[in-house]
Design a binder for these strands. Structure first.
Lengths: 192, 192
DNA sequence: GTCTATAGCTTGATAGAC
DNA sequence: GTCTATCAAGCTATAGAC
């Protein structure tokens, strides 16, 4: 088969993400990544032009998965049902392979700000929130949509777990997220 | 009067916080802080032993304000009313002088992780959440308490404002936060 | 209380051999 | 595709004069 001369590129992505998520982007040096892979820094530079490019490649992967979810969402007719299933699919992404990346994004805003324009996720996130809160002009619904996503991420944050005594398991987070995006049945703020 | 030979120390705190919140802890060098204050790096080291100590001093100030809020909360009898007023007081802190610091804390978790043990806020935050969700054994209530605080912070994040077209003003955030901590009147998740 | 000067180190990145 | 060797630049922090 073509390609696949070695799996170094993917190993770099895996280890880099692991370290970025664990100790932060700035505190993780290329030297450290290289050491953990048992290669030299120069080897990294064969696969990625810069340190930022490593992050960019990780974001691209997530962007692709997001595109699938967004494309599916756009095809649905039943908005309420779609919204619920959308949250469930997001929860799957967060619980699955993209958990560390999401945590990294949440914890390293300053690092991401640097290439805000090249970040393939800002547009997708915007669209995601727009879809979730589509038939709601209420600004509170917009904010709740964002909080729902935060809830999913908190539910998968191990650091958060130990703080709360395992209080925010993924399932609990999913429930709360669903609450946040479900149509309001409550009195609070019902305009008079 | 004693003390107050100069206000340099406070000026350092102000400018440092401004830069930390704006561009992140790691991306802000002492050289940059010194330049903006029109003093030299060495002057900074007269007032603070290390870069981390600057952050520590900022956290101490917030911790004091938190202590006042927590002390007040402990004295109240009516729990539901206290909870609501507690959120309002937190909102005031976030909207007021501590907004930048809260934003900094939210966006620079890796930097704070370094002195997690010396961070005077981790204990206070824990107590805060415990108070908010005190009479609720439901883990969802615990998570909602945290989301309420996140809501307040998002409502005061200017970066977030431009993204959403001014959708998450402080008042809106306060409303959503109050919703999150108010007793549940909804069907969702009512065990059968 | 603030300065100049600099030590000492780490970092991201490159050149060129193999 | 990975290596050795090296670079310039930036950083935190200190010493010591004023």
């Amino acid at each position: 088969m073509a390609g696949r001369r070695s799996d170094t590129r993917e190993r770099i992505q895996r280890i880099a993400l692991e370290l970025f998520a664990e100790q932060g982007y700035e505190k993780t040096s290329l030297r450290e990544i290289a050491e953990k892979l048992d290669v030299t820094k120069a080897a990294l530079y064969y696969h990625f032009r810069t340190k930022e490019d490593i992050v960019a490649s990780l974001l691209e992967d997530l962007a692709s998965s997001m595109d699938e979810v967004l494309a599916w969402a756009r095809e649905q007719d039943d908005h309420a049902k779609m919204r619920e299933e959308l949250i469930r699919r997001l929860a799957k992404l967060v619980e699955g392979q993209f958990g560390p990346l999401m945590r990294f994004m949440q914890d390293n805003q300053p690092a991401l700000k640097d290439f805000h324009d090249r970040n393939p996720l800002v547009g997708r996130m915007k669209e995601l929130f727009a879809i979730i809160a589509a038939d709601e002009t209420d600004p509170r619904a917009q904010l709740r949509a964002r909080l729902a996503v935060v809830a999913l991420m908190l539910g998968n944050n191990p650091q958060f777990h130990e703080e709360t005594g395992g209080v925010a398991q993924p399932e609990v987070a999913l429930e709360v997220a669903l609450e946040l995006v479900s149509p309001r049945g409550r009195a609070a703020g019902q305009a008079t």
